[in-house]
Design a protein around this nucleic acid. Structure first.
Length: 468
RNA sequence: UCCUCGGUAGCUCAGUCGGUAGAGCAAGUGGCUGUUAACCACUGGGUCACAGGUUCGAGUCCUGUCCGGGGAGCCA
């Protein structure tokens, strides 16, 4: 007989017909025995949130020897006839005629993924087994769907995906500490005449690091192809121990030519809305799970956002609002100071209760490449803040005027001579342009309601943690 | 890195005034059952994070180290 393999998702979506002989392969979620002479075996394969229920009669030859020994986590190949289910909770089930055990769980008592609720902290210690749980599986599917949606959005909008380098010699970007890339022998470092490490002997002949941002390279391609974006890994060697920082994370950085800050803000809003709508439509099963077990509001708040526009507010206006409100803050609010987390939270979570775009920050607290405004005090920068996660996007219109750029570099303590190729972009056919960085994991955090960013990347890298 | 709270069974936790250990879940066995967060009964399961100290006696008090949670800074 021809064996027809199906994923659980395809079976539940009706791609197999009732009465058909089908085979699914996956892992046992639960086994429940009935004295009616049957066992219920639910099998998942990750293709969707739901598991497929098999009804296993005790007449199978391996019923006593194998079926009754199956525990959560065992891998099986289950064959039988697809039927409409008479029980509640599923539309289809399989009248099983054969179960092949592929792999046993050697000791069910100490199998780390017991069929019960585990804490997120516990699951994190088993990063190689946690994708077998409902919640991490759901996050993995949502993460995949969000990445696909982002690529689709940009493609539809005429943006080209540019792969900017992961190893870079761009230093002092002001975006944080960098991881060094080197092949030098740490036990026997080459030294120059002054006794400094001689990096001319290193692999690239100079100091190199893992990228903290693809933006500067992105600007080069934007200055020729008009609309580009990067989507790749990013590395920050900050000693950050929070629920929203990783040492290795993924970032999306669009860059648009002939664009001002308002164009950039509009792009950010339409990108986020596109992804929200897409996830609600395509991963409704996983979102329903999040809404029931993780964050009751995670669906309703996305729907609400889709029906309203983002709030926009200048930094100066935000400072006024914070000073006028009755809330008492640990840190005082004063024009010229960076907004503290408590301030950002108040604005997005209490005052507005939805995403807000803060624009036009004081030049002193922002990076050198952001474009100076007419007032000569603020720059055309923007941060998108969302409830629960905080800053999900940071972006700006870039300084396209060479003189102003050089001045901003010197004011930031940087030597323009070290930025030759970046300055060239302003010397040859410079155009107004801008873009932003979207933290991919922060986006998944917002979508799923997961409280910690370490749950939304498969193998999180944080200070002192690079296992697996 | 700073502040703060914690580390006790496979997991989540309780443990009073310092007197050698408890529950729920999970697991095992049996019962019941077209079940689906199953239910009922019984059983097994402990280097109380680690090292030192105080004490007749430490899960409990003190010191140090390691690890984890929450908050902050850095930012996406």
């Amino acid at each position: 007989m021809m064996m027809a393999y199906y994923t659980v998702d395809n079976v539940l979506k009706g791609k197999a017909s009732v009465g058909e002989q089908i085979t699914v392969r996956g892992w046992v979620r639960t086994r429940r025995d009935s004295k009616a002479g049957i066992s219920f075996l639910t099998v998942y394969d990750g293709s969707c949130f739901a598991a497929l229920q098999g009804v296993v009669p005790n007449t199978l030859t391996n019923y006593d020897t194998q079926i009754l020994q199956l525990t959560s986590g065992c891998s099986v190949e289950m064959t039988g006839t697809l039927v409409a289910s008479t029980g509640q909770g599923q539309s289809y089930e399989v009248q099983v005629t054969d179960v092949k055990v592929i792999g046993w769980v050697e000791d069910p008592e100490t199998y780390p993924m017991a069929p019960k609720r585990h804490s997120m902290e516990y699951l994190r210690e088993y990063a190689h087994l946690r994708p077998r749980t409902n919640i991490i599986g759901a996050i993995a599917r949502v993460r995949h769907a969000a990445a696909q949606a982002i690529h689709r959005f940009f493609d539809e909008q005429g943006f080209l995906w540019v792969s900017t380098p992961i190893i870079t010699s761009n230093d002092c970007e002001g975006a944080g500490e960098m991881f060094r890339v080197s092949t030098l022998d740490l036990m026997n470092l080459p030294k120059d005449h002054q006794g400094n490490i001689d990096f001319s002997k290193d692999f690239f002949g100079k100091e190199t690091f893992l990228t903290v941002s693809g933006q500067l390279n992105g600007e080069a391609y934007c200055s020729a192809l008009s609309k580009i974006y990067t989507f790749g890994p990013t590395f920050r060697a900050e000693n950050s121990n929070t629920a929203r920082h990783l040492a290795e994370f993924w970032m999306i950085e669009p860059e648009m030519a002939f664009a001002d800050l308002m164009d950039v803000a509009k792009l950010a809003e339409s990108l986020l809305k596109y992804v929200f709508a897409d996830i609600l439509a395509r991963r409704s099963d996983d979102m329903a799970f999040f809404a029931e077990w993780v964050d009751k509001t995670c669906i309703s708040r996305l729907e609400h956002i889709l029906n309203s526009s983002f709030e926009m507010m200048t930094y100066t206006e935000a400072v006024k609002q914070l000073q006028a409100c009755k809330q008492t803050f640990e840190y005082p609010v004063e024009w010229g100071m960076d907004l503290q987390t408590e301030h950002e939270r108040y604005l997005t979570e209490q005052l507005l209760k939805r995403p807000v775009i803060i624009t036009d920050y004081p030049a002193r607290i922002k990076a050198f490449y952001m474009r100076m405004n007419e007032d000569n005090q603020t720059v055309a920068a923007m941060d998108v803040l969302v409830p629960g996660v905080g800053e999900i996007i940071g972006g700006s219109q870039r300084e396209e005027r060479l003189q102003q750029l050089d001045q901003r570099m010197r004011d930031s303590g940087l030597d323009p001579a070290h930025y030759g190729w970046y300055r060239d972009l302003r010397r040859y056919g410079s155009v107004p342009h801008g873009g932003f960085g979207l933290g991919f994991e922060r986006l998944i955090n917002y979508l799923s309601g997961a409280a910690n960013i370490r749950e939304v990347i498969p193998f999180p890298r944080t200070p002192k943690h690079a296992e697996y």
